[in-house]
């Protein structure tokens, strides 16, 4: 269980990565491929939000979908009812997600151990039930459609998937930049200390509750912003797609498979698993429903056996090996 600084350094490698993410549409991929790429980027942002607290500090949230759903519902409701631009709606959703995180963390971070996971799980179910119950406001279990007005950057509505992709890619770069920065800030060191031993961290002067709270709130904001763009992109949200437990698990899975202790792990995990999931879903009619989940489960089990710290650790190990041989 080793974590090292920001990692995956090299200004050249970073610049190449940024260009690859932004330049993907230049490959002339199909609209379907760009849709998958957009979904990948958005889930990678949401999983990055999870990893700030779940990966960096090992405070596993089982309700990260709540933040995603808050982002999606707040912007969609504001847009559908009052015509508020999703740019402002997204900010409002992020603000509400931050407040929810503060309230939740205020309770959960007084306790050590698994309470955080349980409390996030409980809140996620509560929010889902309230949204399903309050049909007049939220559309209930039937969900909400984003009114299609016109192709417009102001309204965050586009005809082509690649336009959504550029928005999602910019959000992704911002999320990765934040996550990478936090890893190198005092907060990053404190979170790694908390990961290893909370009591030792407190004895070394770390304000454990404050560190967890900052990471949780920053992560909630990122995940909520992804939720807003997701709602605009798909044009439709319901509790199953943005507030469900399986989504929470998925987000955690992307981060864990990719490497939850690194800033780029959630992207690696999402880039592997989201396209795979889409592929399975599109062929699901033939192969039998639910096969995606079985496959996810198998990948997770394999990953935990081979390398519990995810693809990132696998890669680091290989690089170290290569250096040792050189």
């Amino acid at each position: 269980m080793r974590s090292e600084g920001p990692g995956l350094g090299g200004a050249g490698a970073l610049a190449a990565g940024v260009l690859a993410i932004l330049g993907l549409p230049l490959l002339g991929l199909s609209d379907y491929a760009m849709r998958v790429a957009t979904l990948t980027a958005l889930y990678a942002v949401a999983a990055t939000g999870w990893t700030l607290i779940g990966g960096f500090a090992n405070q596993v949230s089982l309700g990260q979908a709540t933040m995603f759903g808050i982002g999606g519902y707040v912007s969609t409701l504001l847009f559908a009812r009052w015509g508020v631009t999703p740019w402002l709606g997204g900010a409002a959703g992020a603000a509400l997600a931050a407040l929810v995180a503060i309230a939740l963390g205020g309770v959960a971070f007084r306790l050590r151990g698994h309470y955080f996971a349980l409390i996030t799980l409980a809140l996620a179910e509560m929010v889902r039930i309230v949204v399903e119950y309050d049909q007049p406001l939220t559309g209930g279990a039937q969900g909400l459609s984003v009114p299609l007005v016109r192709n417009s950057l102001v309204l965050l509505q586009f005809a082509r998937a690649r336009d959504y992709y550029e928005i999602a890619a910019l959000l992704l770069l911002a999320a990765l930049a934040l996550s990478r920065a936090i890893a190198g800030w005092p907060l990053g060191y404190e979170l790694r200390a908390v990961y290893d031993d909370e009591i030792a961290a407190a004895l070394a002067g770390v304000n454990v509750r404050r560190a967890k709270m900052r990471a949780f709130v920053a992560g909630a904001i990122l995940t909520a912003l992804a939720g807003t763009v997701y709602a605009q992109f798909t044009g439709f949200i319901d509790p199953d797609s943005v507030l469900s437990i399986p989504l929470s698990i998925q987000l955690a899975l992307y981060a864990i498979v990719g490497g939850a202790r690194t800033w780029w792990g959630p992207l690696a995990g999402a880039a592997l698993l989201v396209p795979l999931g889409e592929l399975m879903t599109s062929s699901e009619a033939g192969a039998g429903a639910g096969i995606t989940k079985v496959l996810y489960g198998l990948i997770l089990v394999a990953m935990v056996i081979v390398e519990p710290d995810g693809l990132a650790a696998l890669l680091n190990r290989r690089r170290r090996g290569a250096r040792a041989q050189a």
Partner: peptide, 26 residues
């Protein structure tokens, strides 16, 4: 007022320097 523990408590996942650095962040 600082304390060291009966069962030595370090941060095993961090480098030696980073272990000490966490204390200095105070």
């Amino acid at each position: 007022l600082a304390k060291t523990s009966q069962l030595v408590r370090i941060f095993p996942g961090m480098s030696v320097t980073d272990n000490a650095l966490v204390g200095a962040l105070l």
